[in-house]
C-alpha cells in the first residue's frame, strides 16, 4: 500500500496514514477489543470452559475406577490400566477443550454477527484489509484456546483417582500448543463463516459430535491399530492431531509420529484459514 497524504480544508483527518500503519493499529485495536470482551465475560468463560473437562475426568477417571466399572476393574493390573487410561485422557481432554474453545470463541460469535446482529459490518469498516479482520478473529480465538488449555490441564491432572503419569516435553509443548490453538481457531472461522444461525444444531449434532467422539480424545491413535479401517478413517479429523499433539507434549504415552502431527496441523491450519477467509470475504463483501 502506498502513502496518500492529503490535506483537507475543513474536516477529516489532516493526513491519511499509509495502509500498513493503519492496518497495524487497527489489528491491535480489534485484538484488544476481543480480549476486553473475554475479560468482561470471564464469569461465563470459566464454567463453560471447565465444566465439560471436569465432568469427563470425574466420571471416567474417578467414578469408574471407584465403582469398578469401565476401564480398570479394581485389581492391581486394573489399577495400572486405569492409570494409563487417565494419562491418555488428560491429553485428550486438553485437546478437546482447545477444540471446543475454537468453536465457542470464534464460530458461534461469528454465526451471530453474520446472521442477525450484523456487528461484523462495523468491524470491517476499520481501516484494515478484510482478510486481516478474519485473521485477527483467529488470533484472538487462539489466545482464548491457549488460556483454556492452561486452565484445563492442571484440573484434568488432579481429578483422577489413579495416578496420572505426566511428563512434559517443553519444546513440543511450546510449539504444538500454539499451533493446535491456531488450528482450532481457524476451524472455528471456517464453521462460523459457513453456518447460518438456524443450522447451528446441525453444526453441533452432525459435525462436532463425530469430531469429538472420533478425535482420539478417549483413546490414542495407535491403540486404534486393532480397528485398522477406523484408524485410517479418523485421519481426516483435525482433532486427532490436536489430541495426539498434546499426548506427545504432556505424556510418555504412545502417540502418532511427530512429523505427522506437525505437518497435518500445518496443512489443516492453511486449509481452514484459506476456506475461512474466503467465506469471510464472501459474507462481508458483495
Amino acid at each position: 500500500m502506498t502513502t496518500t497524504p492529503t490535506t483537507r480544508a475543513t474536516t477529516g483527518p489532516a493526513t491519511v496514514r499509509a495502509g500498513g500503519a493503519a492496518a497495524r493499529t487497527a489489528f491491535i485495536g480489534l485484538l484488544s477489543r476481543d480480549l476486553t470482551v473475554l475479560r468482561k465475560s470471564i464469569k461465563e468463560f470459566l464454567p463453560r470452559t471447565l465444566l465439560q473437562p471436569l465432568l469427563l475426568m470425574f466420571v471416567f477417571t474417578y467414578v469408574f475406577p471407584k465403582i469398578g466399572q469401565g476401564v480398570g476393574g479394581g485389581s492391581a493390573a486394573g489399577e495400572a490400566a486405569a492409570s494409563a487410561f487417565a494419562t491418555v485422557l488428560v491429553a485428550g481432554v486438553v485437546g478437546l477443550s482447545v477444540f471446543f474453545q475454537g468453536v465457542q470463541a470464534v464460530a458461534l460469535p461469528l454465526v451471530q454477527e453474520f446472521g442477525y446482529t450484523k456487528e461484523i459490518e462495523d468491524r470491517v469498516l476499520a481501516p484494515i484489509p478484510v482478510a486481516l479482520v478474519a485473521i485477527e478473529k483467529v488470533t484472538a480465538g487462539a489466545i482464548q484456546c491457549l488460556f483454556a488449555a492452561s486452565l484445563v490441564f492442571p484440573l484434568a491432572s488432579f481429578v483422577p483417582a489413579t495416578p496420572v503419569n505426566l511428563s512434559i516435553h517443553w519444546p513440543l509443548l511450546i510449539t504444538l500448543a500454539p499451533l493446535a490453538c491456531l488450528v482450532a481457531s481457524a476451524l472455528g472461522l471456517s464453521f462460523g463463516t459457513f453456518f447460518e444461525p438456524r443450522s447451528v444444531p446441525v453444526l453441533f449434532g452432525v459435525v462436532i459430535l463425530p469430531i469429538t467422539f472420533l478425535g482420539c480424545t478417549y483413546y490414542s491413535w495407535s491403540s486404534l491399530e486393532s480397528i485398522r479401517w477406523l484408524q485410517i478413517l479418523v485421519l481426516v479429523n483435525p482433532l486427532v492431531y490436536i489430541s495426539e499433539g498434546f499426548r506427545a507434549a504432556l505424556t510418555d504415552s504412545p502417540h502418532m509420529p511427530l512429523w505427522a502431527i506437525y505437518s497435518a496441523q500445518v496443512v489443516f491450519l492453511a486449509l481452514f484459514l484459506r476456506v475461512g477467509i474466503r467465506n469471510f470475504r464472501k459474507r462481508v463483501l458483495s
Binding site: V16, G19, A22, T117, K118, E119, E121, D122, L125, P129
Partner: peptide, 19 residues
C-alpha cells in the same frame, strides 16, 4: 485502496451494528 479509503469514511448503516 479500500483500506486507506476507510480512514476517510464514517458509516451509519440502516440497522443497529453497535458492539
Amino acid at each position: 485502496e479500500p483500506a486507506v479509503a476507510k480512514q476517510l469514511i464514517g458509516v451509519v448503516p440502516q440497522f443497529n451494528t453497535l458492539d
